[in-house]
Design a protein around this nucleic acid. Sequence first.
DNA 1: TTAAACTTTCAAAACATTTTGAAAGTTAGA
DNA 2: TCTAACTTTCAAAATGTTTTGAAAGTTTAA
Lengths: 167, 167
Amino acid sequence: MKFEEAKSKFIQTWGALGSQWGINKTMAQIHALLMVSPDALSMEDIMEQLQISRGNTSMNLRALMDWGIVYKEYKPGERKEFFAAEGNIDELARKIARERSRREIKPTLRVLKDVSSIDKSTSSEAAHFKAKTEELYDFVSRADNMLEKITEQKENWITKTILKLMR
Amino acid sequence: MKFEEAKSKFIQTWGALGSQWGINKTMAQIHALLMVSPDALSMEDIMEQLQISRGNTSMNLRALMDWGIVYKEYKPGERKEFFAAEGNIDELARKIARERSRREIKPTLRVLKDVSSIDKSTSSEAAHFKAKTEELYDFVSRADNMLEKITEQKENWITKTILKLMR
DNA sequence: TTAAACTTTCAAAACATTTTGAAAGTTAGA
DNA sequence: TCTAACTTTCAAAATGTTTTGAAAGTTTAA
């Protein structure tokens, strides 16, 4: 495979993967492009390489920066802003894990705690509901803890975790 | 909070969570409903409780069965089919993890291996691309391994894993 | 068989999300 | 200050996804 073909295939795949995970395609594609670019790119560069509009580029770059996985860079003598992706993959994964925990898991836990607090003595259906949602709360909160544990070590957490799990 | 209110809130929340994870709202809601129902429900029951059409119900039940997290049940003397969710939460999580690995991670790995096989000597841009995608391959394949390791133990894997991680 | 009870399918409609591009906003330097 | 270079915003258009419901399909039991 040639470089250009490989690059385009990678960007397409990353974009498709994004969609399956509730991240919009363009956002994932911009991220993919920045990841494999040795140097920071300008908005113009991104628009041209992905063939997308200025507005689209601007909005998705902002979203990527909100996630903390893309940074602005300034080049001396240049008026334009340039953009680069988080270069360290461990760090990238940690940031994504943290954001998803904050945005999705934590709010879900709050709701689970809330709904599982009903009085179980009103009906057997209510008792079952209470038991199930408590079980779910327990599970999700353990999983969230685990995620925190795994990602809190800064370097090479995947390797370290696997070593622990192999014992 | 009253039982009915809690139940509805739980179903709504589970549905919203689904959307963020690339699962459609109705599918997640049906799953939520079945999870908290002490008995298996008929299509009619589901349609009525969630106020959705027959077609929608049918398609999403099938999708849930494809994931292996909802089962058909037959009641003696009843012509109708009844549906129940996987009752064990550990088992539920394991099935979801397995399916996501099979549907998303494995295909991504194939692409990463593929695109990272380009010749790095054609340009420094190509060399950078190759290095990055190899790094990504390595990371994703380790993460997938880890997921497998974690979930292959049948009972209480979250608890066991946390114990290991605390050492 | 046949017919009633039930489930699935799928084209069209409804709904939701993404994308565009032009106008408004911002900033840096002359 | 002013203006040119650049970025952001947002309403409308394009696109994508989900939902509906009626028709087709299937199954069971008499």
